[in-house]
Design a protein around this nucleic acid. Sequence first.
DNA 1: AAATCGGGGCC
DNA 2: GGCCCAGATTT
Length: 377
Amino acid sequence: MPNENKKKFNNIAANGEHINFGNPMEITQVLTAWYDENKRDLPWRNTKDPYRIWLSEIILQQTRVDQGLSYYHRFIERFPAVQQLAEADINDVLKLWQGLGYYSRARNLHETAKIITDAFQGKFPDSYEKLLQLKGVGPYTASAVSSIAFGKPVPVLDGNVARVVSRLFAVTEPVNESSGKKSLYSILEKLIDKNDPGRFNQAIMEFGALWCTPRNPPCEKCVLSAFCMARAGKIVEKLPVKTKKINQRKRYFNYFVIKFKQDDGWYYYLRKRTGKDIWLGLYDFPMIETPSFQEQEKVLETARLQKILIPADAVVTAVSDNYRHQLTHQLIHARFFSVEVKNKSSVNFHQYIMVKDFEKYPLPKLIENFLLQANEF
DNA sequence: AAATCGGGGCC
DNA sequence: GGCCCAGATTT
């Protein structure tokens, strides 16, 4: 235990409360026993297949188990082994990922599957260092896979673990800064059960997810209350300390849902998103971004200048209500102009593709939401 | 070290 | 509306 923490602990103990100083072995034993009794029955806990464990860890990055579970099932059903994932089309991988967010995870997932298949003979490396070199695998995921799939004694430090450990040992340093992480790691290295590190790592995460929750944790009934320095100091809800501030950006998207009728039905124009922006690799409609919502006529004029719409051919048949789409760092206001064109050549084919079934393409949630509601389009 | 990458659940 | 979630990558 770092000296700083030990000092705080002694201060609390000096208040006169009886405190069990938390023999690390005892905390470990209580945690793993609690886990055996209370763990959820999750599919990736019934396998030692590194592919399935890796897949679950990528899906669960910044994602609740409840949200990621159905995605895991669909991926395993579609790609039972890493080789099948490697052979898939990236569009199909992104389509399966659609709605889960942080799409770089899906792109890196596919890249790593190809590397494992082609360069590693389909076998995942078993060490933290080698796993860390894979795309989309950072410190957390490398620790999780090496400990859970291969039994390596490497502690995981995710949001749950940071909360549990910062409370148990009253770590008041910001857990999102390097010094705070260092303190937590040095504690975890003493806590981890070297006989079954995968079980311990999942135990402390599960304890954070189900019991030691961000708000209103049931400390009165907690099996670790006797060891918890935050409880002794009455600072449970103040921990963990985080310093990051998120600043939000407002954006205004004017989408053009351009329809073109051919013999076999209506076709639509889609655009594959490129560059450093959100939703890289996904598809949406031709659009113009403006600093704020402008008059419709002005937006249409800009669209003509940019040759998205050809004067005399394009007819705007409807304009949607405003859609509000909230992301972590952006608040997007979007509206959709429904447009009919008479000639195929009215739309720039270098930028846009003409498709009949846009549902087959990976679409941002905003576009999906629009399509579900907009009957008149 | 800070910014950015989604979407959803909870209070 | 703010915080958080089995974080990683880029700047």
